[in-house]
């Protein structure tokens, strides 16, 4: 029996998932190059186990990104400590996370800033919910938390985003809030 060819049909799946995985990986990586390394390792590992790219197993892919990213970060922190001690530390990169049309660039920057102000746990849940499209149960399985914890983090995150973005409502082009009776 010839082994299944894992080099076929991965492109479409990769094209669709890679930007979302990269966004998720950048939660932990200090720069986009490291985040790409994480995505590369995670996708290759996942595809070997799911050569068809079964949608049902996509949460596992995010969990793989998370595991690898945490490993990389642990190693980075050790390196950074060493480099800081020797005074050759490099600043982390602040490349944009979103790729909006030209007219939406400012909005994207505002949203990005608002996202950055969230706690890492809240940001992770929002990223997995909004861009990865996972359910709360899937996010809970990915992060190792309970569904209730995840749902409540999401709620707090939305509240925080509301608070930050409300004064910018007009700039963001959102409909005005209904007047209170």
């Amino acid at each position: 029996m010839k082994p299944h060819d894992i080099t076929a049909d991965w492109h479409i799946c990769f094209q669709e998932l890679a930007p979302k995985l990269l966004l998720y990986g950048r939660q932990w990586a200090t720069n986009s190059a490291d985040a790409e390394d994480i995505v590369q390792m995670a996708f290759v590992r996942w595809w070997q186990r799911n050569p068809g790219g079964d949608r049902e197993h996509v949460p596992l892919l995010y969990a793989t990104v998370r595991t690898i990213a945490l490993d990389v970060r642990r190693s980075d922190e050790r390196r950074l400590r060493r480099e800081t001690n020797s005074e050759i530390a490099l600043p982390s990169e602040e490349a944009p996370h979103f790729d909006p049309p030209v007219e939406d660039r400012e909005n994207a920057l505002m949203l990005e800033r608002a996202m950055r102000d969230l706690s890492p746990e809240q940001r992770e849940v929002v990223t997995l919910r909004i861009w990865a499209g996972l359910t709360f149960a899937e996010i809970a399985a990915t992060t190792g938390e309970t569904t209730n914890t995840v749902a409540s983090r999401y709620r707090y995150a939305l509240n925080n985003l509301h608070r930050v973005l409300e004064p910018l409502r007009e700039d963001l082009g959102a409909a005005p809030a209904p007047a209170l009776a």
Binding site: T7, W10, L22, F43, H97, F98, D104, L111, L165
Partner: peptide, 30 residues
Amino acid sequence: MNDTELENLLRSMTPVAPSPELAGRVQHDL
């Protein structure tokens, strides 16, 4: 802005695509 509007606003932001080399590296590994 209600929750749905906020979620839609967030969803409308497309994450940055990875560099073209990344697909080549994945191809190589596979």
